[in-house]
Design a protein around this nucleic acid. Structure first.
Lengths: 349, 349
DNA sequence: ATTATAACCTAAAACGTTTCGGGTGTCAAA
DNA sequence: TTTGACACCCGAAACGTTTTAGGTTATAAT
């Protein structure tokens, strides 16, 4: 049986109240008494029952995060890094982190959110990867439940979020390729349902239009954010009669798949084909060739949304309720001028 | 204010007890009464307060997992997949999953375990990646706290675990390379402190010895399980006067780094250099070249250790307390016979 | 000698649930 | 009419805390 307040009180001939207040650091306990309590607690190996504390305080000091996972072979390094940021910050602030992994936009996911909110399992939630018709956000807003999102939302609801300017990021990336001399630039994005897919694709379009370059439907593909998806879409694009000289990927995993497909066709990435990703997950720096990508500080994003949420929970006003960070293009070796061997080089002139 | 039992009781002129028992499905409630209670609960939007239930039942229906993360740029796909398995199974069994991310073998990690155990935050724990001197296991065994480990332990403590036979796996991998004709086979393992590093290295040694091949200290390197570590160690090995014709990596991430280093040196992996990994994370199937690796079903491992733990918590006997799964070598394109261009090919004869 | 103040302590209520040990009323059997 | 059995319901205690609202004693001020 674990030691409880009552045990300490009995041993010291004190009331439970006094023991509690001594441990709680209240000033109306004699210094000597506090000392005795502290020592007894130490000796007896007392640790407060967190459940009882929660019931009494009516908060759980726990935040929740539901990770959208698709299928058993789900493994997105992006989420590991986000999780590391969130996890470390929660711990630093003496909070707990409740995690669920559920396929996005399913009854299971919905139930999980309901469970967390309605059973008071968590004080607040983090919502990752906002979607176009995001019932999670509608649900949380509707219930007035505290949350912070990583990502914006189309509808006119006012909630706290942090987002990275995917449009500006992808614009930069596209601009970079155009500057190198590319004209025929393909794009393998993420499913349309995801908000960020929207913004990133917008950045591509914006940059292309600015330079009067045609946007061909045939050069715009939709992947599934995995390496495999990138591989397959790239195979298709590279098999075109007039293939692109550069491919922009909606995220790094997709980009890695593109590289893989290119290499399998004997192309040298960075010369015969330029590839640019988005995210800057740790893996891509030491890939071959190292990947040019739009870098967003995933770990710091995790830390920050976590910090925002906890601030919110503690009743503080957020200095910035809606934050947009600017990503940064990191040029590495996977992008270069369209090579002499490129089929469509002449078209570029 | 959320609806509580008392509210329902008041509305129906019943006692809290009866309402509770009606909702709990006890037989000593009139069918008609139960019906009224159920309907009122539905109408009023009642959801039990999970904290109060926990306090009363003295269980949390929560299991914990502390993910060992090293540094902010931590991102191991292996853990994402494990997490997906654990997460889905916990949800299926109506449990909650409490996650922490802490650097291994640090005071922070120790405190987190203490917090979880002593504050009764969780009913049981999953321990991943057992270590040679694993204070986590010593602590949990010492406290008689329920847990299941992914990985064995050297010391003579009897606890439930699931492990994959790394020795057999690496033996197979080594055998595969030897069969292909390789003789000069290097090994980039994981830090010695990790139990699995031990077994896997043992498998390499075992196979080499069986074939009377010399085990050169200079060909055995220690990585850090990341792509970067693999890259750096591979650069060193490939820079040797007589470089190896094949490199075995202690995990897939390391293997990807090796491939990257080889390609940077202009080697064609699978011909000029063979590379074999361990884990079979989703990424490696669509890498270029696709990676030959020892496959362990990470997702299923997550599901299984989770299932074992919950069984344990529910007081059931485990049919198998200590399980050892056999991994399987998956041959893809990163391994082949030592090529004609290989420096040390002649030595092999 | 009274009153105010301060220092220290505590009983009891509260948090929302489940469970224990009856209690009441009805009906059938004796 | 009593007795038992049964069906249904309920008060109170319990889970381990914190908080509220004092209570007691000693000391200082009047």
């Amino acid at each position: 049986m674990p030691v409880i307040l009552k045990d300490i009180a009995a041993r010291l001939n004190l009331s439970v109240t006094t023991v509690s207040r001594a441990l709680g650091g209240y000033p109306d306990v004699a210094a000597e008494t506090r000392e005795r309590v502290l020592q007894a607690a130490e000796e007896m190996g007392y640790h407060p029952d967190v459940t009882a504390q929660r019931l009494q305080k009516r908060r759980t000091d726990t935040i929740g995060l539901v990770i959208p996972t698709s299928g058993p072979r789900f493994s997105d390094p992006y989420f590991t890094e986000l999780l590391a940021g969130v996890g470390n910050e929660t711990a630093r602030q003496q909070f707990e982190l409740l995690i669920a992994t559920r396929p996005p936009d399913t009854p299971e996911e919905r139930e999980t959110y309901e469970r967390m909110v309605q059973g008071h399992r968590v004080d607040g939630l983090l919502v990752a990867r906002t979607r176009r018709r995001d019932e999670r956000i509608a649900f949380l807003c509707g219930n007035g439940f505290p949350f912070v999102a990583f990502g914006r939302w189309g509808e006119e609801l006012d909630f706290p979020y942090l987002d990275v300017d995917g449009q500006a990021g992808m614009d930069q990336a596209t601009q970079h390729l155009i500057n190198l001399g590319h004209r025929r630039i393909a794009y393998i994005g993420a499913p349309r349902e995801l908000m960020f897919a929207h913004f990133r694709l917008g950045g591509y379009r914006q940059a292309m239009e600015r330079h009067g370059l045609p946007i061909e439907d045939g050069l715009i593909a939709v992947g599934d954010l995995t390496q495999k998806g990138g591989y397959e879409e790239a195979q298709r694009l590279l098999g075109l009669k007039v293939p692109p000289t550069a491919i922009l990927a909606g995220n790094d995993l997709t980009a890695l798949g593109v590289i893989s497909a290119a290499q399998e066709r004997g192309l040298e990435v960075g010369r015969d084909l330029s590839v640019v990703g988005f995210d800057d997950i740790p893996q891509v720096e030491h890939a071959h060739p190292s990947l040019t990508t739009v870098s967003q500080p995933i770990y710091d994003i995790g830390v920050t949304i976590c910090r925002m949420l906890i601030q919110l929970l503690q009743g503080e006003e957020l200095t910035e309720r809606q934050v947009l960070w600017q990503p940064e293009l990191v040029v590495r070796s996977s992008s270069g001028p369209p090579g002499p061997g490129t089929v469509s080089r002449d078209l570029a002139k």
